[in-house]
Nucleic acid binder design. Structure first.
Lengths: 155, 155
DNA sequence: CGATATCGTTCACAGCTCGAATGATTCAGG
DNA sequence: CCTGAATCATTCGAGCTGTGAACGATATCG
């Protein structure tokens, strides 16, 4: 099958052709660009702040422990993230009346709007990154990444 | 076309479905796992050390400035990376006789072997990550990532 | 020959994240 | 009801990574 007429494949031997390598480098450029897009908001937001809003926006309200577990970070980090988001008026901290140790975080309407802006920035970046792909290629990419995330045990 | 019978698509609205998000998270898990694989070597290697070897292994020898530019890091960082690799006997530092300011780095035969081991680890990780993909899906993924890297101006 | 630029190196510092300690609160068991 | 253990949020100190500003050596240009 792949004999003489395959001039494009295997032109790069070595680690550069590896999945881990490509995912790593592309992952960093993607988050770097997203970070810069967030910087344009002048709100001191980092991708992790957005991750908090994403979790809160998707499901119900969550305690900081749950946030930390779902994000795979230390609970102490969630404190500072929530501090900042609360200061921006994007999330609300309420003591759980049934368990007054828990701080229940909810996304405010302002937070919802902010999350929408972040999503818009993300989608704009998507189009920019995937400008060289056909619709079919992009669909295949989405599906493949979904499977990879599944395999890695990600949500 | 997409009316009643599309229960699988668009089930996740929001940023989670975004390319930047998926690439970011998958990129971190990929490099995290690669870092752990390198840790198993007990040589104090980090992905950036491997990146140096990759660049040296692909093209000709390079000065540290060129390394830094190609990797997108500060020249001062290349110093410590090269220090460590030199201590391991993986690279050799030679003053360029035509310009004695430049340190020309070359991959030794030991370095070549070490790079091969890193590549093997990377490919093993690849198979692990892409275990849930068909051959066609994986090929499509490779091609799509190649196009993305192109679009982002990466090598 | 002198001024300026470049390379590698060192060093201090900022950013990010974690883990241990702390205080408040809840829960289990006698 | 009381006491000890567990859990949550928070603070704080420490580690790791990477950068940018010096600095000395060398090269280049006038």
């Amino acid at each position: 099958m792949s004999d003489v007429n395959s001039p494009r494949t295997d032109q790069l031997p070595g680690l550069t052709a590896t999945l881990v390598f490509k995912l790593g480098t592309l992952g960093t450029v993607a988050t770097d660009r997203f970070t810069r897009a967030l910087d344009a908001f002048e709100l001191g937001l980092k991708p992790k702040h957005v991750a908090v809003m994403v979790v809160l926006g998707a499901g119900a309200a969550a305690s900081q422990q749950e946030l930390a577990a779902r994000m795979g970070v230390a609970p102490s980090l969630v404190v500072s993230l929530a501090d900042h988001l609360e200061q921006l008026g994007a999330v609300q901290r309420v003591r759980d009346p049934h368990d007054r140790r828990r701080q229940v975080l909810t996304l405010t309407s302002d937070g919802r709007r902010l999350l929408d802006r972040c999503e818009a920035a993300g989608r704009a970046l998507d189009d920019e990154l995937a400008a060289g792909l056909t619709v079919a290629q992009r669909a295949a990419l989405d599906e493949a990444l979904r499977l990879l995330a599944n395999q890695a045990g990600l949500p």
